[in-house]
């Protein structure tokens, strides 16, 4: 295993800087000595078997999970118990969940404008205009007045992406965004994510879609048993894996 896990990161002020991160669920050591630095505009794909801690890792970045050791600095702000810092970071970090987690009692448009209106204090008209632009970008402006329960899974996930983008974040976290979707709908969500990657958004994506990783990732990280086992460019990662654990994983999913 490489001792310098950040050797590939470009030499810029990192967007996310994670040093010596450890986390436990009760006695279970779920994240072990994670060091990860993400440069602005960098696109990272994290993969690994279930239970390897990859979701927990990105949920630590916006404090949906609390870490016990180490430091996480997001865009210059360190995550501590200080609620102000947590709020500031959550404003800058968008997140898309496996189960979409749209608000079922609000229309698609209201889902998108809620954050800007209540957190960013954007006037309602501006928020709606922005929301319509972003719904256009995820290719479902015609569903704006419907409720989430009336949409297909793929449409819901695209609304969830638009909802996050409405907060105009600097970083987007994706937690297995296509794992709950029917095969025919995975592509429409991945297309939106590829578009987003091309705009230069900093992205961390936990996914098993290796085609997506090969197409857009700057770096692929493989995790197992709460630690980073291997990280490399997609090309090297898929064609020339070093760790035996990585080789086993790739042989099973490809």
């Amino acid at each position: 295993m490489s001792t310098d896990q950040n050797q590939i990161a470009p030499n810029a002020q990192p967007m996310i800087d994670i040093v010596g991160l450890n986390k436990w669920f009760g006695p279970f050591h779920v994240l072990r000595d994670i060091n990860l630095s993400v440069a602005p505009r960098e696109r990272i794909v994290i993969c690994g078997p279930s239970g390897s801690g990859k979701s927990t890792l990105i949920r630590c970045i916006n404090r949906l999970e609390e870490h016990q050791q180490g430091s996480i600095v997001v865009d210059g702000t360190e995550l501590t118990h200080d609620l102000k810092n947590i709020d500031a970071i959550r404003r800058e970090v968008g997140m898309v969940f496996q189960q979409f987690n749209l608000f079922p009692h609000l229309s698609v448009l209201e889902n998108c404008t809620l954050g800007p209106i209540w957190v960013r204090k954007t006037p309602k008209r501006d928020a709606e205009k922005l929301a319509m632009e972003l719904l256009e970008r995820v290719k479902i402006p015609e569903q704006a007045d419907k409720y989430p329960g009336q949409l297909s899974g793929g449409q819901q996930q695209r609304v969830a992406i638009a909802r996050s983008l409405c907060m105009q974040p600097n970083i987007m976290l994706f937690d297995e965004p296509t794992s709950a979707l029917d095969p025919e709908m995975i592509k429409e969500v991945l297309d939106v994510m590829v578009d987003l990657a091309e705009t230069g958004m900093t992205m961390i994506v936990v996914t098993h879609e290796m085609g997506f990783a090969a197409q857009v990732a700057d770096r692929v990280i493989f995790m197992d048993a709460g630690q980073i086992v291997e990280q490399n460019t997609p090309d090297e990662f898929f064609n020339n894996p070093q760790s035996d654990r990585t080789k086993l994983f790739l042989s099973q999913i490809l």
């Binding site: 404090r63 949906l64 997140m95 809620l114």
Partner: peptide, 9 residues
């Protein structure tokens, strides 16, 4: 979690 991720208190 979705509400928190949007930054709602």
């Amino acid at each position: 979690e979705a509400a928190q991720a949007l930054g709602l208190g």
